[in-house]
């Protein structure tokens, strides 16, 4: 999912290429650097990620409908009959894919935000399978999924240990002999226009990424979903916009790939192409697309 880093001098939001929603927005709020309290990352995420998504769910969802090309391609390449996990499904926009073979594969959506799941459970106008759960957990028969995607999710986890745990969980969820996965996270290396919105703090040393707050501005006058709330207020007095700061860890070059490799090593997987008598994971592709890093992997077993 992309993040609106709108700037009103631009004709459109340069993250999602849409100008529709930005006309509703209050003046732009910059992304700000933050540092997190690592003593209780779970509570921190509850406050700065889960609670925010629960509050902005309908508006957030209305801006998230266009699948990104690499993810659409990945899902198009999945054979008919496979079953998959979308870990951090949000509004479920990837659950209906591939659009040219509806129902040929089943992607089950998991998310921490109950309000986003209420939207995801009917993504694309068809009943979907969704689970209220945590991306660090594994409430499945291990290795039961043929494929998994984790899109714009792991960057919401507040410590390196938790980000690695999320990748381990994803690796365990897919079939040890053929499971495929695609992970997408937000990059500190932004495209040309976005660069100016990103702070360069002292932590930005090129290896560790950067912890930031990304604001979401909810302008209540234009949000139809808030209409009930508005009527209880004084009717002709415009309500102030609400700003919700979401926590993100922006990944630096190479960080996602090494995170995946470290997670794989931790669970005893060989990194690279198949060798005999082993279990492993091969990196199929990794790269940068539209201000995000991605890694696609495949598990193999020759045991």
């Amino acid at each position: 999912m992309c993040i609106h880093l709108y700037h009103h001098t631009l004709p459109h939001c340069y993250r999602c290429q849409s100008y529709l929603f930005c006309t509703f927005m209050a003046p732009p709020k910059a992304v700000t650097a933050t540092s997190i309290d690592t003593s209780d990352p779970q509570t921190y995420e509850d406050q700065h990620v889960h609670s925010v998504y629960d509050q902005i769910a309908p508006h957030f969802s209305s801006t998230r409908y266009k699948p990104w090309p690499i993810i659409a391609q990945f899902l198009s390449s999945i054979p008919t009959g496979w079953i998959g996990l979308d870990s951090g499904t949000g509004n479920g926009k990837y659950l209906p894919l591939p659009l040219d073979r509806p129902g040929s594969i089943w992607t089950i959506g998991l998310d921490r935000s109950r309000n986003l799941l209420s939207i995801a459970q009917n993504a694309g106008g068809v009943a979907r399978e969704v689970i209220w759960g945590d991306v660090l957990d594994n409430p499945w028969r291990h290795g039961v999924f043929d494929y998994a995607i984790s899109i714009a999710t792991i960057h919401h986890l507040a410590t390196p240990v938790r980000r690695k745990a999320a990748v381990k969980s994803l690796l365990k969820s897919i079939d040890p002999s053929h499971g495929r996965a695609l992970i997408y996270v937000w990059a500190i290396e932004q495209d040309t226009l976005s660069k100016r919105a990103v702070p360069t703090g002292e932590d930005d040393n090129g290896t560790d990424g950067q912890d930031v707050f990304v604001p979401w501005v909810l302008a209540s006058q234009t949000s139809k979903t808030n209409s009930k709330q508005e009527h209880t207020e004084e009717t002709d007095k415009p309500k102030e916009s609400q700003v919700f700061n979401r926590y993100y860890h922006m990944f630096t070059r190479g960080e996602l790939r090494s995170l995946v490799e470290n997670a794989a090593r931790d669970i005893g997987l060989h990194i690279g192409k198949e060798v005999s008598g082993a279990r492993g994971v091969e990196i199929i592709q990794d790269g940068w697309e539209r201000s995000n890093y991605y890694v696609e992997i495949r598990r193999w077993s020759t045991e």
Binding site: L110, L117, S118, V130, I131, W132, G133, D137
Partner: peptide, 10 residues
Amino acid sequence: NGIPNMLLAE
């Protein structure tokens, strides 16, 4: 409402 809660307490 058709959504299973698979979250665990800490």
